[in-house]
Amino acid sequence: MQDFINAIILGIIEGLTEFLPVSSTGHLILAGDLLGFEGDAATTFKIVIQLGAVMAVLILYWKRYMDILKGLVSLNFREKKKLNAVHMVLAMIPALIVYLLFNDIIKDVLFESAAVVIGLVVGGVLMIVAARTKRKVTAEETDDITYKQALGIGLFQCLALWPGFSRSGSTISGGLLLGTSQKAAADFTFMISVPVMLGATVLDLYDSRNLLTADDLVLFLIGFIAAFVVAMIAVVTFLNLIKRLRLEWFAFYRFVLAALFYIFVIM
Results as ranks from 00 to 15, higher is better:
M1A: 09
F4D: 02
A7R: 09
I8V: 15
G11V: 06
L16M: 14
L16R: 11
L16W: 13
T17R: 07
E18C: 07
P21D: 07
P21Y: 09
V22A: 00
S23C: 04
S24Q: 05
G26P: 05
L28F: 09
L28P: 02
L30C: 00
L30M: 13
A31Y: 11
G32S: 01
F37I: 05
E38L: 02
G39M: 05
G39T: 11
A41P: 06
A42M: 04
T44F: 00
F45V: 02
F45D: 01
I49G: 00
G52L: 07
A53D: 11
V54M: 07
M55G: 03
A56S: 15
L60V: 13
L60D: 05
Y61M: 04
W62Y: 14
W62G: 00
R64P: 01
Y65M: 03
Y65V: 05
M66P: 03
D67W: 10
L72Q: 01
V73M: 08
L75T: 13
E79C: 00
K80I: 06
K80W: 01
A85N: 03
V89I: 15
L90H: 09
A91F: 09
I93K: 10
A95K: 09
V98I: 15
L101P: 07
K107Q: 15
K107M: 14
V109I: 15
L110H: 12
F111Q: 11
A115C: 13
A115I: 14
V117L: 04
I118Y: 08
I118G: 01
I118S: 04
L120R: 10
V121L: 12
M127V: 12
M127N: 08
V129E: 08
A130Y: 07
T133C: 09
T133E: 10
K136T: 15
T138W: 03
A139N: 08
E141S: 10
D144W: 10
I145S: 06
T146P: 08
Y147H: 08
A150L: 06
L151Q: 10
F156K: 05
C158W: 07
A160S: 14
L161D: 11
F165H: 02
F165W: 11
S166W: 10
S166V: 07
R167I: 05
S168N: 06
S170R: 05
S170K: 05
S170V: 06
S173A: 13
Q182E: 02
A184Q: 04
A185K: 03
F188V: 08
F188A: 04
T189C: 14
F190Q: 02
M191T: 12
I192T: 11
V196D: 00
V196Y: 04
G199P: 06
A200S: 13
A200H: 05
A200G: 05
L205Q: 11
S208F: 09
N210W: 14
N210V: 12
T213F: 09
A214Q: 14
D216N: 15
L217P: 04
V218M: 09
V218Y: 10
L219K: 11
L221T: 15
I222W: 08
A227G: 01
A227V: 00
F228C: 00
I233N: 00
V236H: 12
V236G: 04
F238S: 03
L245Y: 14
R246P: 14
R246D: 15
L247W: 13
W249G: 04
F250P: 08
F252V: 15
V256Y: 07
A258G: 03
L260M: 07
V265R: 09
M267D: 12
